[in-house]
Design a protein around this nucleic acid. Structure first.
Length: 258
DNA sequence: AGTAATAGTTGT
DNA sequence: ACAACTATTACT
């Protein structure tokens, strides 16, 4: 019985467009009054992606004017081990983004992290006081990130295996371990990459997050009946040759290996 | 049955 | 030594 948080398993698809999970408990953003509200509601203050001058009208949101390169799922899932300095100047990276709307407490009771092995410097809570560190990533509070990822995954019913493979390019076991036993940033060496990806994912807008999941995990079973993922005569290795820039949702690149 | 968690092992 | 993978087990 180690169940935490009363999750309402009403959502099957990772679609952000949850009608409104009203009745779900408190995890739902309170402001979801307007249909679109819910989408951004979850997003804690979106940093506007640092866009000076150019405002980002809603109708233009499809064009990620800000970043398109730093995408794990987009860059192919092969060699990723080496992170080459992420595009600087984007996410504000702040201590811990506590959602202003407060959907925190999703669980209701205390965190499950308690046990003991927590040597994390009390970094959390550095939110007040103009902590906006614009600039590159500083240290990520792995504990917090892990917690948030766990929550979000549950919220959308995204299996670890999917998230791990699609977004982090890791295996399920690895993710599970990382989420349950996050090592302090200072103690991480190369594992930072993975956490960075998680962080990055959290920072993305809904549709983009889902895109990442769907991009690589296009596993439609039946449904429209048309999808080249069926037979897939062994794509072999490459096959990741998609257009560099797709307008609006890239749709589906191709079947997914693995 | 599906998903999450753990163990044990391997590669860098 | 760290990070991650696979396989296995446990739980829902």
């Amino acid at each position: 019985m180690r169940d935490e948080r009363g999750l309402a398993p009403m959502n099957n698809l990772y679609a952000p467009y949850h009608k409104d999970v009203a009745g779900m408990g408190q995890s739902l953003s309170p402001l979801s009054g307007s249909g679109l509200g819910s989408v951004h509601g979850s997003q804690q203050a979106l940093p506007h992606y640092a866009h000076p001058g150019a405002a980002m009208p809603a109708d233009k949101m499809l064009t990620p004017t800000g970043f398109e390169a730093p995408h794990p799922a987009m860059l192919g899932r092969h060699g990723e081990q080496h992170l080459s300095a992420p595009p600087a100047g984007m996410v504000p990276l702040g201590g811990i983004p506590h959602p202003p709307h407060g959907h925190l407490g999703a669980q209701g009771h205390g965190q499950l992290l308690g046990p003991g092995r927590e040597q994390n410097p009390a970094v959390a809570g550095s939110q007040a006081g103009g902590g906006s560190n614009s600039g590159q990533m500083e240290e990520i509070n792995t504990k917090e990130v892990a917690q948030r990822i766990t929550t979000e995954l549950k919220r959308y019913s995204i299996p670890q295996a999917i998230f791990a493979q699609r977004v982090l390019c890791r295996s399920q076991g690895t993710l599970s371990d990382l989420l349950r036993n996050p090592k302090p940033w200072s103690k991480l060496k190369s594992g930072r990459e993975t956490f960075r990806r998680m962080w990055k994912w959290l920072q993305e807008p809904e549709f983009q997050r889902m895109s990442a999941l769907r991009l690589a995990g296009e596993r439609s079973r039946g449904g429209t009946g048309r999808d080249g993922t069926g037979p897939a005569p062994a794509p072999g290795r490459a096959g990741v040759a998609r257009a560099p820039r797709s307008r609006a949702v890239p749709a589906k690149p191709a079947g997914l290996p693995s």
